[in-house]
Every structure is written in structure tokens, then in C-alpha cells.
Design a protein around this nucleic acid. Structure first.
Lengths: 194, 194
DNA sequence: CCTGAGGGAGAACGTTCGGTCTCATCGCTA
DNA sequence: TAGCGATGAGACCGAACGTTCTCCCTCAGG
């Protein structure tokens, strides 16, 4: 039991598989990595992979699902303990810059993935859209608690800055990128009366 | 003559090859497209491809080189006829939003490519970095002509907004993305005293 | 006329791809 | 102890990959 669509993972082999796939897909891309690489580094046999996942695509979806859960948890945890709404926005901003400056940062897993899956009907592409919609909704809701003006524009502005920071964070100096991003966040807050 | 490193293209077959590769690589990605697709749609035989390009990688580099030339020409053309420096910045901004709202927009060709080539030593990755450095230098120089303050921070800010707009332009409503981006550009100009 | 470059047509190379298969083994539990 | 599900080991499949090859045709310049 406990085997659902998005579900259970009570197997050590499956966990090794997923964590290995996450590491390699994020670091090297998806199309350029074969299942041979993954099963070799996960120290798992072919049969085991296909017992837990219907195919490579499902492994990719599991990878993105895990990344999605991690980010949601991180965004939520970052807000904890912040008293004002503005500080919650700043905390989310710091969560992002922490990632950018962290070791092994390779950009946004979802932006990277969608670059390899341009077809809007593809499950991977749609998973990316779903994650992005959640993030836009989250920051818009957060910004709505800062000031009185409608927050739609500010939310899009913040997401746009985040996308740019995540894209450039592994192409330029992460420190400078983080600084520019946080300045942009302050600008958004200032425009809302903070 | 006229055959240089980045060079001449006096052959009809080569031109068809390059324009087909540009179209397909941009629309569908690089690793997921085989040379069979390209030679088929370019109506060219295998031997012809390998007579003009040392391999697929060189075709990819030629694709990015062509995109780079097109963007440089577009950015330069957009500035023509603008009297003030601020208007030149706005014109570059409009050049970007025109692309985002144009038919077949699939994001930034360079950001998409670098997502598939994470290795910083790879020629494709370095071609992306070179293009980005040119763009950062260009907009920083442009912004330096607006107001008196140092323009480094403003340049990075503008590039960050552009990256975000290009990344999201094919994932959300391009109209809204363009609007948000242009508002951001006005914000940057306002901060410089315009 | 001859020559040689550019191109078309297509076979073939070795490798890797994602995926399926069989069979032996291990560990748990009924 | 018997049985059963999960795993390991690895052969195997057809297809696609990037690349090289031969052969023939065409056409412009000597």
C-alpha cells in the first residue's frame, strides 16, 4: 500500500534513485543524461529503476516534484518568525539569494527543465507551469499584505526579478546578483509604502 | 576566400542548413534534435552538412553566432533616431518586448542553450557568456549616459529584469510580462533622475 | 575537352539511447 | 520451513544518435 501517483517511497533503492536523479539532472540537464548514468551512480540495476518508475519521464517528474516540495517548504520556513509582511517578503528574498550563493547552484531547476521541454502539452512543461503559478500566487498574496494597492503588478515584478536572478546566478558573480536582487526587492517594498 | 572562423556563407545549401538549424534549435532545444531532422527539413544530405560544419556542435555555435549578430543589430537599430539617452534605453526595452510578443517567441536563445550546456568550459557555454557580457556592457554604458550616478548597479538591474522577462515571456501572458518589464525599466530610469 | 568542387542519394559505422527480459539471490513474514 | 516480493546481474531489443563513406550527377573554368 501507500503507493500513490505522487506518493510513497518506502524503498531504499527508490530513494537512492530519486536523489541521484535529482543531483545529476539538476547539475547536467535532462536530455544529456542517460538512464545508464543514473542507475550506475545510484548503484541500482535497470530492472529496479523500471520497477519504481514507468520510464525516464516519470523519473523526471518525480525529480521536479521533489524540487517543488523542497522550495515550498523552504519558502514557508523562511517566513516563520517574521513579524511584518514586509519582513516576510524580505525573508523569501533571502531564501532565494541563499540558494543562489549556495554550493552547486545551477539556476532554477524549473526554468532549466522547461528549456528542454518547450512543448506546452508535455507533462514536464506543465509541471513547471504549475510550480511557477504557485510561486506567483504566493508572492502576490504576500505582497498584498504590504500596503493597500493591488499586488498583481508587484507580484509579477518580484517573480520577474527572481527569474532573472536565478538565471544569471550561475553565469555571473552570485554575490553581485544577490545584491542586485535584494535591492530590487527593497524597491518593490518601497513602492508599496514601506 | 571570405571563409573565416565565424565567417562566410556563400553557399545556398549552407544558408538553408543554418536557417533551418536556427529555427529548430530555438523552437525545440538542441539535445533533443538530431541531425537527421535538420538535414531533412533543410533538404540537404548528410554529406553536405559535414562538408560545411565539422559536426553538430559547430552548427550549434553557428546558430548562436547568428542569433548574437541579429540581437546586436536589433539593439543598435532600435537606438537610431532617439535623441536622449533615456529614450535609447526605452527603445532597447521596446526591442525586447517586441521580441517577447512576436510570433514563435520561445525565450532567450542563449539562456535556453546554456541550460543544456552547464559545463563552463564548453564552447557553447562560453559563447553564451560572451553574448551576455556584451549585453551587460552595452546597457551599462547606455545607462551611464542617463544621470550622473555610477551605472553598474543599474545595468545589472536592467539585465536581471530582461532575463526574467525573457524567461517568463513564453510561460505567461507575453502582454503582461512586457508591461511589467517596461514598468521596471521606467523605475530604473526614474531612479537615475529621469 | 578535361577537371574538380559542390551537391544529392544512401549505405554503413560504432555507440548510446530507453526499455524489456530472464534468472538467481536475499530478507522478511506467515 | 515455505513462500513471496524486492533486488542484483546482465543479456537483449529496436531505434536513434553523430559520423564517415562511396558513388554519381551537375556545372563552371581551364
Amino acid at each position: 500500500m501507500s503507493e500513490g501517483t505522487g506518493g510513497g517511497s518506502t524503498s531504499a533503492a527508490r530513494a537512492r534513485l530519486l536523489s541521484t536523479a535529482t543531483k545529476i539532472f539538476y547539475a547536467e540537464g535532462i536530455h544529456s543524461v542517460g538512464v545508464d548514468r543514473i542507475i550506475a551512480e545510484a548503484q541500482v540495476t535497470r530492472a529496479t529503476l523500471y520497477r519504481h518508475f514507468a520510464g525516464k519521464e516519470e523519473l523526471v517528474l518525480a525529480y521536479l516534484d521533489q524540487a517543488d516540495r523542497g522550495i515550498r517548504a523552504g519558502v514557508e520556513a523562511a517566513q516563520a518568525g517574521q513579524e511584518t509582511a514586509a519582513d516576510r517578503v524580505r525573508a523569501v528574498g533571502r531564501f532565494i539569494t541563499d540558494g543562489i550563493q549556495g554550493p552547486g547552484f545551477r539556476g532554477c531547476a524549473f526554468l532549466n527543465a522547461v528549456a528542454e521541454y518547450p512543448d506546452p502539452t508535455h507533462p514536464v512543461h506543465r509541471a513547471v507551469l504549475a510550480h511557477r503559478q504557485w510561486f506567483l500566487d504566493t508572492v502576490t498574496e504576500l505582497l498584498a499584505q504590504v500596503g493597500d494597492a493591488p499586488a498583481d503588478e508587484a507580484g509579477r515584478h518580484l517573480v520577474m526579478l527572481r527569474d532573472g536572478a536565478m538565471a544569471a546566478g550561475c553565469l555571473f558573480d552570485p554575490k553581485l546578483i544577490s545584491e542586485t536582487f535584494l535591492l530590487g526587492v527593497e524597491g518593490i517594498l518601497r513602492a508599496r509604502g514601506v
